[in-house]
Design a protein around this nucleic acid. Sequence first.
DNA 1: AAAATTTCTTAATGAAATGTTAATATCTAT
DNA 2: ATAGATATTAACATTTCATTAAGAAATTTT
Lengths: 232, 232
Amino acid sequence: MKSNKRILLVEDDPNFGRILKDYLTINNYEVSLAVNGIEGFEKFNRSDFDLCILDIMMPFKDGLTLAKEIREVNELIPLIFLTAKNLKDDVLKGYKIGADDYLTKPFDSEILLAKIKSILNRKSNVYNNEQDTFEFEFGDFNFNSKLRILTHKDDESYKLSPKENQLLKMLVLNFDDLLPRDIALNKIWRDSNYFTSRSMDVYIAKLRKYLDKDLTLKIINVHGEGFRLAKE
Amino acid sequence: MKSNKRILLVEDDPNFGRILKDYLTINNYEVSLAVNGIEGFEKFNRSDFDLCILDIMMPFKDGLTLAKEIREVNELIPLIFLTAKNLKDDVLKGYKIGADDYLTKPFDSEILLAKIKSILNRKSNVYNNEQDTFEFEFGDFNFNSKLRILTHKDDESYKLSPKENQLLKMLVLNFDDLLPRDIALNKIWRDSNYFTSRSMDVYIAKLRKYLDKDLTLKIINVHGEGFRLAKE
DNA sequence: AAAATTTCTTAATGAAATGTTAATATCTAT
DNA sequence: ATAGATATTAACATTTCATTAAGAAATTTT
């Protein structure tokens, strides 16, 4: 029974890493072990994984920093953190980055296994994102979300900031349909509260300014729900 | 900032339950507290929740049994278990049923909050969006309840407020049939009393004004019972 | 038919969400 | 360390929304 699922394990303690890797391998996962954050990031980029298990406390580059880098490249891959003790702060930071779970060392290996299964079986994971498209046409604009450039038909072209870019991309992907506030906040700001919400409003204002170049395009607010990019 | 997410909390210890409920309420969740598995299941069936937090150790019906019943009815709702100690067996059973997470008592409330957030916005990636219909045609109108827009044939279009929207949706879903006052009140206003009833009347008046555009449509009162949206 | 109850409608009020610009704060690359 | 870019927070204006009040009208009960 080949499970086929690939796990990236980043753990600086070689003994513990070895044991954990073997244990997971026995349980039909294909495991790649990296001994620090730098190697971890390289491995991550070199191949496709289904899940990452990251030790937080590591020399050179800690697990949280590594996680941030991974998240920039891949928003969806599940992350599990290992914390040496119950370092609440690390745990909270981890969740903010988009952790799926954390485990406190020492932990029970069967429980880890159960978590992994649970995460990988989640129906939500089946959902594979629209990540590939990065070039869009709408109204009089051409929008390249990879280069973060919004170009107007005539000539003018704007460099978008990362947040402007992400927000515009989500609006465009939901063209003429509602982009719920919560969804955008949780995806872009990774949190949904009064302040992130106000921040989002500021970005909506900025985008509206760009889009003013095409008078038929509008970002319409649906009070209490979200926004909708629409034509005419 | 309305989070509006609804949590079912099932916990037999009344003190702890109360405290936890208050804590979550302060953090903008709407919490319904049940003190045992039986009551928990009833509450679950009586209304819609976004997440359940279940104590495992409970009299009458334990959390795992309750979870199984809930899973039979709803296979997607996120479940978080609370275990008194690190009862490995319970944890493993929990995952088997399809838990999203578990917490060992005593736990840090901030961490619970982080978990809840993480779980809820993970699910919302899948687009929690009710797959139910949100577009309707009746009389001379097109009604999009997702965007809260009511459009008349010859062009005029109205933005509906959330309450107008919900009420109209219920009327349309019961087209030509009685929509009992109590049902609408309990679903939309979450309460049925003199004042909510007055408020509902105000909304009926507002809807009538919109529907005036099509003279064949009427919202008919059934004295003491409710309302009926009908054509002719 | 008078009294009591329920419904109808408009308007006033206050709370909450959004729009927008400007002032800080934070980050990033030299 | 500093400048420039980016992000957040503050501040104030505006809009949207739900509730309540109040008086009239309709319906039911007595």
